[in-house]
Design a protein around this nucleic acid. Structure first.
Lengths: 180, 180
DNA sequence: CGATAAGGAACGGTATCGTTCACTAAGCAC
DNA sequence: GTGCTTAGTGAACGATACCGTTCCTTATCG
């Protein structure tokens, strides 16, 4: 039975994954090295050797490209409506993924962990907002470009997973009328 | 030194106040009978005599009219813009009050404490949404009426207290164009 | 084979838990 | 007022869980 003990990056990625999964299921306040180590089936020592707080660990986990927040490319479907649907639909989808639910837990941490919150904003909100602002052209102020992602986010917080139909409604009833 | 020991409703209101204050400063997960009792300068026994979980306590605290979530009356300033400003401005103001910050802590509790979240929705979101929908007249769908409060809420979550100018921008750049 | 680091158990320390106790202030009946 | 009943105060309890750290064993890699 070879390869029964993970090392290095292999182990680190497993830890990241466990941390985000744990975060998605509970809350940042309830995160602990103990639970993360248990879920990753490793010892706490391996964690303390690398990080000194759960905030540091989560910060690294978010930054890791493998987490899936990396690139957000412009859709180019041909129509503004199509592009908005792809961008916001993708956002809604991510929010329901494990690592996306971890993100949702972090948005309430602005005051207590500014660095963590800022990282979330950089990884999730800013790239989408910038893309949308480009799509909207000269009509798109920063505030207007933020409306779509923000509405999707609150919809998710209030009612859970945001359906395609809901995204459609946001695009058709709010965003398009505003720029048309 | 008379009246040094509170009883009944007097004490209960002090407990409610302490619970919401404690919640505003930390998070729902970190709430404990111990902290609430300490802040209210009473014994834990007085709390356990009335509630069995912090969720029950907070639920009652929110429901208490003295908490300040009670009435939300239509503004009637004469103009749609004025009415929207009053409603959304008032909402933004509440979110920065102690009991409003307690509310913000609860909006992430939908999955773990549905009853608690539902109460928050009833007390804060629904009344404002209904009033706005009335204001908008026949042009106002439920989804459209929710846009204002939702944008104010996310603005608060992302950047802290929402200024009058920010509310003005939401009204002028988003809401009014949508119904004009 | 030797150096490194993972696995896992154990440590003492701390926090909160829910409960119980004796004490005494407050409210009520008379 | 006096006395009785109710209930808030405040401290203590043992139980439990988890904290962050350290230890020894052993797999992995060069």
């Amino acid at each position: 039975m070879p390869d029964t003990r993970r090392r290095g990056d292999d182990l680190v990625r497993a830890i990241y994954s466990s941390a985000l999964a744990e975060l998605a299921e509970s809350s940042f306040e309830e995160l602990s090295f103990e639970k993360i180590a248990l879920r990753a089936r490793t010892g706490k020592a391996a964690l303390y050797r690398r990080w000194s707080t759960t905030a540091d660990l989560v910060l690294d986990a978010l930054t890791d490209p493998a987490a899936g927040f990396g690139e957000t490319r412009p859709p180019r479907t041909g129509s503004l409506r199509g592009d908005l649907m792809v961008l916001l639909g993708g956002f809604a989808w991510i929010l329901d993924e494990p690592h996306g639910r971890a993100l949702v837990q972090l948005i309430t941490q602005r005051q207590r962990h500014p660095a963590l919150f800022e990282r979330v904003r950089e990884l999730v909100f800013r790239p989408r907002q910038e893309l949308i602002q480009e799509l909207l052209g000269k009509a798109g102020t920063a505030r207007l470009a933020a409306v779509g992602p923000r509405l999707v986010l609150v919809a998710h917080i209030e009612s859970g997973p945001v359906s395609e139909a809901e995204v459609e409604a946001i695009v058709d009833e709010v965003l398009l009328p505003l720029v048309g």
